[in-house]
Amino acid sequence: MSHPMALPDHRPPLKRHRHLLAALALTCAICLLRLPLRATIATIDTLHRLPLATPGAEAPALTRLVHACTRASALWPGRVACLETSLALVLAAAFTGRRLHWCLGGRFDPPATHAWAQHPDGTPVGEPTDTPWPWTTALRI
């Protein structure tokens, strides 16, 4: 008979302010998605006009934001999928002075839709890198 055992957690530890930032961003994302899409687009456009943070260790900070938003979405009592999580990541990045684009797209075979956050250079943030990117961008904000 085997005994259940916990798998080790390989995610970096998060500080309390990142948990709060991710929870705030997820709450804002869920509220924004209840509004018409043009209101969400206008909000993201407005956030893109905010001044950027000074360049520094960009990759580790974004990795911590991705983990914080993923953890916040796991604790949310309702439905949270790629649409809400990716918008929360874009909002959390904007709150910290970083700029990410929110992308909506799809694929044909098998048919599916997806939402993701993207660097200004076009690389997806927080998405698996072990498989080829199957999504075609329909809207990039």
Results as ranks from 00 to 15, higher is better:
residue 14 L to G: 03
residue 21 L to M: 13
residue 127 E to L: 00
residue 74 A to S: 10
residue 67 H to M: 10
residue 56 G to S: 11
residue 22 A to I: 03
residue 31 C to I: 12
residue 47 L to K: 04
residue 105 G to S: 00
residue 77 P to V: 07
residue 97 G to Y: 02
residue 87 L to V: 05
residue 90 V to M: 02
residue 55 P to H: 10
residue 125 V to W: 01
residue 38 R to K: 13
residue 27 T to G: 06
residue 75 L to T: 10
residue 89 L to H: 02
residue 87 L to G: 00
residue 90 V to L: 02
residue 57 A to M: 11
residue 7 L to G: 04
residue 5 M to Q: 11
residue 122 G to V: 10
residue 56 G to Q: 11
residue 101 H to F: 10
residue 104 L to Q: 15
residue 41 I to W: 06
residue 42 A to P: 07
residue 2 S to Y: 09
residue 87 L to K: 03
residue 52 L to G: 13
residue 92 A to R: 01
residue 8 P to W: 09
residue 53 A to M: 10
residue 61 A to G: 03
residue 51 P to H: 08
residue 46 T to K: 13
residue 96 T to K: 03
residue 28 C to F: 02
residue 104 L to K: 05
residue 12 P to M: 10
residue 8 P to Y: 06
residue 13 P to N: 12
residue 32 L to T: 01
residue 106 G to K: 03
residue 25 A to K: 04
residue 29 A to C: 08
residue 17 H to C: 09
residue 31 C to T: 12
residue 84 E to Y: 03
residue 136 T to A: 12
residue 83 L to S: 08
residue 128 P to I: 12
residue 6 A to I: 15
residue 139 L to E: 09
residue 21 L to K: 01
residue 73 S to R: 12
residue 133 W to I: 11
residue 93 A to F: 00
residue 67 H to N: 09
residue 68 A to I: 01
residue 37 L to Q: 13
residue 130 D to F: 09
residue 13 P to F: 11
residue 51 P to F: 10
residue 29 A to I: 05
residue 115 A to R: 08
residue 120 P to M: 10
residue 36 P to T: 12
residue 75 L to C: 14
residue 42 A to G: 15
residue 11 R to L: 15
residue 54 T to K: 07
residue 77 P to E: 06
residue 72 A to I: 07
residue 28 C to W: 09
residue 109 D to F: 09
residue 18 R to W: 07
residue 13 P to I: 02
residue 137 T to R: 09
residue 67 H to V: 15
residue 26 L to H: 00
residue 57 A to V: 08
residue 136 T to G: 06
